[in-house]
Design a binder for these strands. Sequence first.
DNA 1: CGATCCACCTGTCGGC
DNA 2: TGCCGACAGGTGGATC
Length: 297
Amino acid sequence: MPELPEVETVRRGLQPFMEGATVLAVEQRRPDLRFPFPDRFVERLTGRRIEALERRAKYLIVHLDDGLGLISHLGMSGSYRIEQDDGDQVPGTFQHERSKNAVHDHVVMHLGAKDGAKNRIIYNDPRRFGFMLFAEPGGLNMHPLIKDLGTEPTGNRLDGALLAKLFHNKGAPLKAALLDQKLIAGLGNIYVCEALWRAELSPRRMAGTIAGENGAATGMSERLAASIRSVIADAIKAGGSSLKDYRQADGELGYFQHSFSVYDREGAPCPRSGCGGTISRIVQSGRSTFYCPVCQH
DNA sequence: CGATCCACCTGTCGGC
DNA sequence: TGCCGACAGGTGGATC
């Protein structure tokens, strides 16, 4: 589930329950996820007030009132849900079929809101590729996992000129370059496939070939930058609009998957008007790539 | 240094 | 119904 738009959707769902709340208690139910939990994980969180919940690339960062940062990554299968004191799931937060998956509830944070309401924020992660680490006060931007992250594809900082500069002289295929978090931060397998389709660029094209002389912007780099921004913006918008009835939908996967043009659509007709191609699946650096060999060059 | 591969886990699905 | 292999939204670390 979690590429940038999903993480942003999670952040927006959690934010109203977390910001300003006090951590009353923490249950840490196993010693590790992908990495061991930090020393004194429970003790250092308990009693703290949460000042802000931030997203950077695919990381969530909980800012605590003593300056400590809790860095949380969802890996491949991590999710958060919120339960109120009465045990009801709060609408608009990610969820699983609770009883079946409770064995994978690895962390429970008991929060007290300013108005006295109590909620539980529950981290569930069957595959345990996710993790939680601390960034010491003032050290977030020097943290090894954070410091080398590239440009966010949200807003308008990512444009054709920047993309051309980043990819200039890169021999890797576009697919690999777009997945490189040091260049652009937050894209994953799905949205890279989707962005390349929107830009009519082949995932196999060498990244450097979309840049002009000396790394200048080109029509291709402009097109790709615009496609990345639009696919991310659309997905965030879909995540947000799905939140209000997420519970009723009873779904984990949810929303934007219905808008996929190429991802997981091998054999389907290319949705581009007049193209007539068929979506292919290939493997690049060990991961599936979906694209249309007719209209993507 | 950069580029490539593997490992880390569990769950699900399709084929036999 | 069961068994087995392939595959899944990510990325740190080893290796070349």
